[in-house]
Write a protein that binds this DNA or RNA. Structure first.
Lengths: 91, 91
DNA sequence: TCGCGCACCGGTATTAGTATCACTGCCATG
DNA sequence: CATGGCAGTGATACTAATACCGGTGCGCGA
């Protein structure tokens, strides 16, 4: 196999990221935030629901920026976020 | 067309990100950093050379963490990094 | 000089991210 | 009751990310 499928842990990490973003969105609508971030509402919805567990870097950056979130804060609220854990997440 | 190809601006933004990471890596070897971050050396090399312009979020997070970089600092050194600019980057 | 390790590249194979579309359901407002 | 907006889903189409492999070149130590 050439590219390994995402592990369970990686998908769970994606769910945590999505939940954090959804919480930060608070009352605003998905359509509103997605449009401002320059992505499609479906994509933001999938990220928030964990159906896109490892979104592109700049996609997350754009959404966090619209929500006024610091990336460092966003990550620190995710649980296991240091590289040592990442590297051994599902391997 | 369903998924639009990356624009020139997005590729240039990827090159800036790669340069920033390479600078931060300083003297350490690609193999060393990539292994610690849990990714393959080829992937890190492609990111640094801009041949992967929009890497996965957690990939960048892992590399930045190994390098001791704050994501916010990393982004602020990239130039146009607010969502308004992102959204209109190449559209 | 001969290995050896690292950087780099191109190709290949496979999975993932993203946009568009076509639906359903819910709720508020006319 | 009708209509319209938003959330959600699933399918489809397409590009991108990632890993592995084989090859090249370069510098450095034995």
């Amino acid at each position: 196999m050439v590219r390994v499928p995402l592990t369970i842990s990686e998908r769970e990490r994606g769910e945590r990221l999505g939940r954090a973003l959804r919480t930060a969105r608070a009352g605003r609508s998905i359509v509103d935030v997605a449009t401002q971030a320059g992505i499609s509402p479906e994509t933001l919805r999938k990220i928030e629901r964990g159906r896109i567990p490892t979104p592109a870097f700049f996609t997350v950056v754009a959404v966090a920026d619209v929500l006024g979130l610091s990336l460092d804060d966003l990550l620190s609220g995710l649980g296991a976020d240091d590289a040592a854990d990442m590297a051994t997440l599902g391997r």
